[in-house]
Design a protein around this nucleic acid. Sequence first.
DNA 1: CCTAATTATACGGAAAACCGTAAGCAGGAA
DNA 2: TTCCTGCTTACGGTTTTCCGTATAATTAGG
Lengths: 221, 221
Amino acid sequence: MIKKVLIAEDHESTNISVQKTMEELSIADPHYVYYCDDAFAKVQMAIQKGQPYDLLITDLSFEEDANVQKITGGLTLIPAVRQIQPDLKIIVFSAEHRAATIEMLFQQLDIDGYVRKARHDAKELVTAVEAVSRHQRHFPRHLTQLIKQKNTHDFSEYDIMVISRLAEGMHQKDIPAYLAENKIRPSGLSSLEKRLAYIREVLGFSKNEQLVAFCKDMGII
Amino acid sequence: MIKKVLIAEDHESTNISVQKTMEELSIADPHYVYYCDDAFAKVQMAIQKGQPYDLLITDLSFEEDANVQKITGGLTLIPAVRQIQPDLKIIVFSAEHRAATIEMLFQQLDIDGYVRKARHDAKELVTAVEAVSRHQRHFPRHLTQLIKQKNTHDFSEYDIMVISRLAEGMHQKDIPAYLAENKIRPSGLSSLEKRLAYIREVLGFSKNEQLVAFCKDMGII
DNA sequence: CCTAATTATACGGAAAACCGTAAGCAGGAA
DNA sequence: TTCCTGCTTACGGTTTTCCGTATAATTAGG
């Protein structure tokens, strides 16, 4: 049974509405934070007090601000809390729509549920919490649908990283050094070239300029 | 004074939180809809009953679903409601961050406020509603920052033409033929190269990808 | 019409990107 | 282990872009 819940979400409006959804689930007094570091601290504190959380609901992306954080987003927060409390249930509540990322969350980070911020997200969040309380996983409905669309390329974190650097004016030949520095693999120039060539081919593009323009239009970068 | 408010927002979670924010502003019983067509119908109905809305809070992007809509998003909803009720105050609440789009909203659609979905969006929404109730406009903070760095270079029709072709994937070496065909001068490859090099230099850019990204951000192309 | 100044183009070498091929390397199965 | 498979990387040739310089064309003023 889910009794004690922690919400990590930087968008105040979303944070509030998740709190409200918890009320509907008769989950009293959900705790909430706007920063990942606070989330981690609260989980840690709860364990020390012998009253650990049952569920963490977290966003993936947290915007940077003056308040510099050690943990910068859901992708680092989740492993961190899992390390100190392996049985903590985790539901990710995010606008992320890329199938690859969501699958990664389930496979690599072993999350218990994913709810995509969309039209009926509050209702789906209720469903997800109920599923998790029955020790089931909650997969987002749209995940199966997304696999269909082939002609549109599913941009990975890697792709976005690389294209963002291009859009910032970094020379392609300098990106391998950047990738190596940030421990991102593959980092070889050849791999990079091939990946970009592949994306261009899938989308029917001929130039990186076109790819950058597309990603800007789509809000990918 | 703002008394009667309509919220148009397809994301349920966001919709709920906006409702909650209205409560804090002592705005009783805000109406809310998940579709643009419903929003328009409600505005129309309210006028007919002699009790028109004072404020519309709307998102820009509404996701398509089985429920096919005539009005597909905020950009079409706003002119539609303005036509039947010119004095209706409108605040746009969206994740859109491109300066060009936001400026367009103020200049072309004459909206009264813009609040970007971000960390302190609920607080900013309160501020925005308060400003609007005083018949003031509410500009998003990050917009003023972007305006500064703008217009370091005056993009000519020629520049826009050329950069657009690049963004569409046309090879630089093929653009002279295109320019000649359309009787645009100068059409020489060398002149083209020099012009692009000049623009990049003025803006402190190193690559055409960066230039394309900039123009997309600024809404130049 | 001529001349000077400005602008446009041609050219060529250097740098970067592109692309095919082959070699290296890790992980899994027999 | 040995082989296989898939991913990553190195390498080399070609194409494209970049950029400096030189030449040609255009324009403005007298």
